[in-house]
Design a binder for these strands. Structure first.
Length: 806
DNA sequence: ATCTTTTTGATTTTT
DNA sequence: TCAAAAAGAT
């Protein structure tokens, strides 16, 4: 294809180990099935690898890279391989490394965003930035937008920054710069969306910053406007590989198409049936259109599934078959038989959680004639994260170890962001957003008014907030105790910044070519000590030490961890760069635990035993999806169901409840319409033989149960005697089981609470019920699992007025 | 400036 | 129901 004929120089450039490998017959090909092999060998021209769930996609992808290297088609730095998540990128790197013995780094293997940052740092000035631009996180972004909304004299309640952020993100996903937003869309946000978008971009430029969307969008802009630069990269990246192509948005699509235009050696891997990020801007259309976009493309289907049993695959195929507009593929497996998918109806959400908890323990013991399955082998996949709570509650009560995936990530926690803002100030004192974040954290007596003064001083002089504060202090424009503390703060930042500059004079280089974390040896630990000093001197650590709330010790722990993480890096700025792009918190625990996570988070994972609770219309498929996106939304929900089922290797249990508490209200539920799509004989319906606990213990023997062996539809469910009984009970609220309790006395002065009907809310301990009153003391049982606390000295106006029932 | 009460509004989430 | 954010009070 492309004429690289300088073969002698080329040969020399390939390390010996790889040349040796090229000489031998390729062992990595022996491991592959015919489809996978075809996908590896089809090197020239566009290739679409349609890889169903569990068909060995990553294996094919990594083998392809190894093949490119081993045959000398490309050197490691001539392959562009992009993924969506850092985890996927890491895994690919590891696997290629393992297959080749060792490879010297593949610099262009990474996420769309990390590759884009590398490109953008080299050409930042073309989009009005400097190469050391910073990457904003969501917090900063919202703060900035809010300022703009206020400045535009808009009611920030009617027009929340969140919404504008979503809109701008949406536009950036579609690769629309402010001028390019079509008029049909511009009406959004009180007709001022594009205007604010424009201002936002200008503000970002003046801050020398960009957001996540910009990383891609700026690259596309540069490629489109500068043919010479584009050509350079096109030559550079001789082969392009893309993972999870079905999740690409328009900007990513353009990015790829521009880069692939020349040689067209692009291999996209994906599965149209697993496109579940439409709400985030992903266009399934990209993968559906592939053959049109790249005429002459080869389409290779990986359909042999190595993960699941026949029954599970049949159920998954049955669901997904209801979607229109698929590229179409049929998963098959050599493994015969296996357990049928189970469909189970429950009385309510708590009952469902109870049943699943029992089932997990049963399988752990090896009952059911299967297994035994350890806790690591079992996962609960929910549609919405609030569903997790019922399981957490139940598992805490029975003492079943679990892990929740997708909680607040480490780097998104309050204390970590605060600490990071301090570091950012130390590295670049002009970082106004960081300044705003921490100028009054810990409390320095600088309230809204003082901060507005600083803003004004900065604006008048056209300088950063830090300089503005300095100016304000110099002319005595600020009084009271705030002044002294502000002085100390400004001096502190100066001192820390000096240390940063002096300890690393070569900052500029470090910023432009940040060392990758794995290649960065911890040379000296000046920056680690500096970080500790900053956190101490700023009073941030003592702020948490003095905090009496239960979460304070954990926060201090996190800060320690943060400082420890710094040791892996060469400098503060290297660390900041890393954190901006890598927001995940991968702590692989060895302990045996059941996993609870959302369906979205489960993509790419597999478990022998999978539970899919909450299959009720409105919850799954989600009402909001259907309302907002109609048929398209429903199809995406269906793909989510497909993803869920195909995570299971051996045993998959779908369940639904007749009653569920939604925002505190009991609602009677209908089974999910997807149940009608689970294919006939492979589904078994069980309603539990009795409801136990939940206040229905006595009724259990009478409750009976039902079993539908053949085809299960919702109609069958309705007609089953078990379901009829559930319906009869509908609206009757089960009595909650008493919780375990623990006594605790609270300092009189620490108490501040107010009463709400027969409930009490306490800022630090949450909601609780009043158990008794003695004099001016109130006994309250708080809801938080396993804690009953005695609150002394409760006083509230309503209480004193005698308006409350207790 | 900060602490206390009321109101609001609530999928999925990488980078 | 329950947090978080806004409004109100000190």
């Amino acid at each position: 294809m492309s004429g690289y004929d300088d073969s002698e120089a080329f040969e020399a450039a390939i390390p010996l180990s790889q040349r040796a490998m090229a000489a031998r017959p390729a062992p990595y090909l022996d491991d592959l099935n015919p489809a996978q092999r075809a996908a590896v060998l089809a090197l020239d021209g566009p290739v679409l690898m349609l890889a169903g769930a569990g068909t060995g996609k990553t294996k094919a992808l990594t083998s392809r890279i190894v093949h490119l290297l081993a045959t000398g088609k490309a050197r490691p730095n001539e392959i562009l391989a992009v993924t969506f998540t850092n985890k996927a990128a890491r895994e690919m790197k590891e696997r290629v490394g393992r297959m080749l013995g060792q490879v010297e780094g593949m610099p262009w293997m990474g996420t769309f965003h990390s590759v884009s940052v590398k490109i953008l740092r080299r050409h930042a000035e073309l989009v009005g930035l400097k190469s050391n631009f910073t990457i904003l996180d969501t917090d900063d972004q919202l703060r900035l937008l809010k300022q703009l909304i206020v400045a535009a004299n808009m009611d920030e309640k009617r027009w929340p920054a969140r919404q504008l952020a979503g809109l701008i993100d949406h536009w950036k996903n579609r690769a629309w710069t402010p001028e390019k937003v079509p008029s049909s869309e511009a009406a959004g946000f009180n007709n001022r969306g594009t205007e604010l978008y424009d201002q936002y971009q200008a503000r970002l430029r003046s801050l020398n910053a960009c957001d996540f969307g910009d990383l891609l969008l700026h690259c596309v802009t540069i490629f489109q406007a500068h043919a010479d630069i584009l050509t350079q990269y096109q030559r550079w990246f001789r082969y392009i590989l893309v993972d999870e192509y079905q999740d690409t948005n328009v900007a990513q699509y353009l990015w790829l198409r521009l880069l692939a235009q020349g040689h067209r050696n692009i291999c996209c891997v994906g599965d149209d049936d697993q496109s579940i990020y439409g709400w985030r801007g992903a266009e399934v259309g990209n993968i559906l259109r592939f053959e049109k976009d790249f005429p002459g493309a080869q389409v290779i289907r990986l359909e042999q599934n190595y993960r699941s049993t026949e029954h599970i695959l049949a159920a998954a195929s049955g669901v997904i078959a209801a979607n229109a507009g698929r590229l179409g593929k049929t998963l098959w497996t050599e493994a015969e038989g296996g357990e049928k998918l189970r469909l189970i109806g429950h009385w309510d959400g708590e009952e469902e959680a109870r049943w699943i908890g029992d089932e997990i323990e049963a399988l752990q013991r090896g009952s059911r004639g299967l297994g035994p399955f350890g806790l690591n082998d079992q996962a609960i996949l929910v549609r919405a994260s609030h569903q997790m709570r019922a399981f957490e509650d139940r598992f805490l009560t029975i003492g079943l170890p679990y892990r929740v995936i997708g909680g607040p990530r480490f780097y998104e926690r309050l204390e970590i962001r605060d600490a990071m803002a301090y570091f950012r100030l130390a590295v670049s004192p002009d970082d106004d957003l960081a300044f705003e974040r921490v100028v009054n954290t810990p409390k320095r007596g600088l309230g809204d008014k003082a901060q507005q003064e600083i803003q004004r001083a900065a604006r008048e002089n056209g300088v950063s907030l830090l300089e503005g504060a300095r100016e304000l202090l110099a002319r005595g424009g600020i009084g009271g105790k705030g002044a002294g503390q502000l002085r100390a703060f400004v001096d502190g930042v100066d001192r820390w910044h000096d240390t940063v500059v002096n300890s690393r004079p070569e900052i500029a280089d470090a910023v432009i070519e940040p060392l990758l974390p794995e290649t960065a040896p911890a040379r000296d630990h000046v920056h680690v000590r500096l970080a500790e000093v900053i956190l101490e001197e700023s009073g941030y650590v003592s702020m948490w030490q003095n905090d009496k709330t239960p979460e304070a010790p954990g926060r201090l722990e996190n800060l320690k961890e943060l400082v420890k993480a710094l040791e892996q890096f060469d400098s503060l700025q290297g660390f900041l760069e890393h954190v901006a792009l890598i927001m995940d918190n991968e702590t692989e625990e060895a302990a045996e635990k059941v996993t609870i996570m959302t369906l979205h988070a489960a993509k790419g994972l597999e478990f022998p035993v999978v539970y899919l609770p909450g299959w009720e219309d409105g919850l799954f498929p989600s009402q909001r999806s259907m309302d907002e996106s109609g048929q398209k939304g429903l199809e995406e929900e269906r793909r989510l169901a497909y993803v869920g089922i195909t995570r299971a290797e051996r045993l998959c249990t779908v369940s639904f409840a007749a009653n569920r508490r939604v925002y505190g209200q009991w609602q009677s539920q209908l089974p999910s319409r997807f149940i009608d799509e689970l294919p006939g004989a492979h589904v078994e319906v069980l309603t539990p033989p009795g409801l136990y606990g939940g206040g229905f213990g006595a009724a259990a023997p009478a409750f009976g149960g039902s079993r539908i062996e053949e085809r299960a539809t919702r109609a069958d469910v309705y007609n089953s005697p078990g379901w009829k009984r559930l319906q009869d009970r509908a609206g009757q609220r089960p009595v909650a089981q008493p919780r375990e309790s623990r006594n605790m006395t609270i300092d009189l002065h620490a108490v501040s609470a107010y009463a709400l009907q027969d409930r009490v809310f306490h800022q630090k301990f949450g909601y609780g019920s009043v158990i008794g009153i003695e004099g001016d003391k109130l006994e309250v049982a708080f809801d938080k699992a396993g804690t009953k606390k005695v609150v002394a000295g409760f006083i509230s106006p309503a209480h004193e007025a005698g308006d409350l029932p207790f």
